[in-house]
Design a protein around this nucleic acid. Structure first.
Lengths: 215, 215
DNA sequence: GCCTTATATGAGGCTTGGCTCATGTTTTGG
DNA sequence: CCAAAACATGAGCCAAGCCTCATATAAGGC
């Protein structure tokens, strides 16, 4: 699974709960933490396999080896477990981007394209639930905007410090495109009955590379 | 709305129904045809606004000014009305591609990129339900494969007859990419709270143009 | 006019799935 | 060891939504 603490922080801030705003209950004991981890792992599988709507709380609980009541102990709504998972992946993804920054600073655009394409689409492919959750329609607008802005900003920052540096405004636009290209890559990778899958992905990578290589 | 006959043909082939395979009942009288048209138009709106899962048969009927029973008269399942709509859009899209062919034959790749980007993403933006229905997870595998293969083939054919002609194998790969780029374009166009939307779309178009321009 | 077939209607059957709650069991602090 | 808090359990409540059906009404064909 992905990092534990990153999302543990997202679950019910330590102090007072503001009003009675529904939030995930944070586990207090070791057993609880293990449960939460198992539940999140199970949810990740079920969401990835069935999508958000078709995923059922009953199956998530079952796959985690927990009762339905135990699931609701920590995640009072289906929406909340989706949010917790999404926040976790989001943080992990951001962390990966941050780790990438020092390694690619000052490199030419083409190299940047290769690295982004390989590492980021690798992450998304390894965590299909992330894409599912990020794409769902009924996601909270505010949260979505913030998450998206953060990722865009990080990618734009990487692009801005390429060898022939890219102007910030253009880097922002390119970041949006990179994100969409990655989703396409994941979709292509997961498509069944697609001949020459590898060739298509290679072509996609080449396209981005060529575009970033050109000033 | 889109062409009527294209999907009228998809609704319950004229002869015997093979076994008792559930299929949309074809209207026999004028009143019925009007109903079907209204129902499809309503379904298109509701699917586009809410997605397949969240769309309800009750709302589709209401928006068409019909009773729920009347809706089920012509479309015995939710799945069937989705299929009918999707088939209609699919045919219309294919028709548009066919109409494009003579107009772009022998033109350079860059021009082709511009035309494809403008006309096709225009079509998708004008018919958002098409994208929603094409993307839904529980779509019939066989049907999806066929539809996809047809569109890919048509786009590949356009690319193959560009001025410096593109080899068929590569054209097929590029066709897959073009389809995905178009979906990205529609997504970007529909994204709210996205600064510089126009600039992003322009960048996307430029990327495809550059890639197709290079041999 | 009359019979047949197409179309219209909406109350309700029925399943699914999110969620609650009363009743346990385990763990911890003192 | 014991009380309190954390955690576990699963039967079942409940709303939503797909779909059926008995009962109309409109529209041809003769």
């Amino acid at each position: 699974m992905t990092s534990q603490k990153s999302s543990a922080g997202m679950i019910a801030a330590s102090g007072r709960k503001p009003a009675d705003k529904v939030a995930a209950r944070a586990p207090q004991r070791e057993r609880g933490r293990a449960r939460v981890a198992a539940l999140l792992a199970a949810a990740s599988e079920v969401f990835a396999e069935n999508g958000y709507d078709a995923a059922t709380m009953t199956e998530i609980a079952a796959r985690a080896g927990a009762s339905i009541g135990s699931l609701y102990q920590f995640f009072p709504t289906k929406e909340l477990i989706a949010e917790a998972l999404h926040a976790q992946y989001s943080d992990d993804f951001a962390a990966m981007l941050a780790g990438l920054a020092p390694r690619v600073a000052g490199k030419p655009g083409a190299t940047l394209a290769d690295v982004l394409f390989r590492d980021l689409s690798g992450f998304l492919t390894a965590h299909p639930a992330f894409v599912v959750l990020a794409d769902r329609r009924d996601i909270d607008k505010k949260r979505k905007k913030k998450t998206h802005a953060r990722l865009r900003g990080q990618i734009a920052a990487l692009l801005a410090q390429a060898d022939p540096p890219i102007a910030p405004a253009r880097a922002e636009a390119l970041a949006v495109i990179v994100l969409h290209l990655l989703r396409s890559a994941v979709a292509i990778a997961g498509e069944d009955d697609l001949p020459h899958r590898a060739a298509v992905l290679e072509e996609l990578r080449a396209m981005l590379r060529r575009h970033l290589a050109a000033a």
